[in-house]
Design a protein around this nucleic acid. Sequence first.
DNA 1: CAACCCATGTAATGGGTTACATGATTAC
DNA 2: GTAATCATGTAACCCATTACATGGGTTG
Lengths: 193, 193
Amino acid sequence: MTELSKPAYVVLGMIATGRRSGYAMSRTAKEATRHFWATSDGQIYPQLKALSDAGYITGEREAQGGRERVVYSLTDQGRAALDDWLNSGERAHYELRDEGLLRLFFAEELSVEQLRAQIEIMRRRHRRAIEHLEDLRPRAGGHACAHLTLQYGLDLHAFSIDWYDRLDAELAERPPDERAGEALEAINALVIG
Amino acid sequence: MTELSKPAYVVLGMIATGRRSGYAMSRTAKEATRHFWATSDGQIYPQLKALSDAGYITGEREAQGGRERVVYSLTDQGRAALDDWLNSGERAHYELRDEGLLRLFFAEELSVEQLRAQIEIMRRRHRRAIEHLEDLRPRAGGHACAHLTLQYGLDLHAFSIDWYDRLDAELAERPPDERAGEALEAINALVIG
DNA sequence: CAACCCATGTAATGGGTTACATGATTAC
DNA sequence: GTAATCATGTAACCCATTACATGGGTTG
């Protein structure tokens, strides 16, 4: 049995947890999983066809108040593949892409003032992320797991804000026109040493 | 002046902070920025050529103890582009991809026991990440910004471990064969409500 | 009757990784 | 001498996003 792709497991998982039409999966992907695992429509719909053809899922046309839609179910094969993945100890993909951190990494030659401006931008970004996730909370419905992963996101951004707050407090003690590299060297010695 | 690509800014930043050969950039990308911004050789070397052609950087052949290598410098144009990017308030790209969280999201139907097994796997992953970053610390050299972003990584993973520890402690109070969805519903009510 | 949501898809494009390819130098 | 590191690059492939395309139903 060959390994399935990541979007395939997303689709299988969506069906198993009650998001049974392509559209419902698309909504959940945007609203509930986007903040830790992005999945686009351009992956979902082709994947539904592929998993159908391969016998992991079956689709049935259903009239939903006049509008037609296709509602999918897992086959035994699909259920087995999902359970395998959910319980596998295989190394899970983990990746962070943070352009703000990348800027910090190259900030050596900036002034303390400029660095603090960047940090403020990053804090704002995390604050907006929290607001956004807070807005999504009512939409998590009765799904305990959706609430859980949402809470992780909220706590993660809160951690980052806190981290930058503490860094900024240290930088506030330094002269604004000092080279950021110098100021950070002194601060790092405190934090780590 | 057209926006440059992300790998382009990586290259400009690397030069500005003293990583002036393609190989040195490649090393730093693997050792110091990989954990928050991945950049592969397949991006670096073509980018060096493109930025040279566009007049952002200039390369000079240099004999480094017999071996030849190309050492790059920023032109005024390149320095300006980098400074723009470093000080721009434009929304920075931020993205998390965490397959472990994705599994948690779909864990509703697992048993508490199975869920706890997954959580243990995730904690192990974060612990390994910390070990890995700890190994890299000596290599950060005198670069205060490298130390800073490394520290962020360490603290971030420590946060996650702590978060899962607390979740696991709650789950340990529930019967192992209970449905994860049920157990989490009860726990979520405590945490959020 | 216009705007928005439900619903499904495709094609072009862009971004990034991996594997491959080469060769010199240095350390054991 | 052989393994690792220094050093530079290319090509094939995979993955994912974006934009486009279509059309029925609902709400203000």
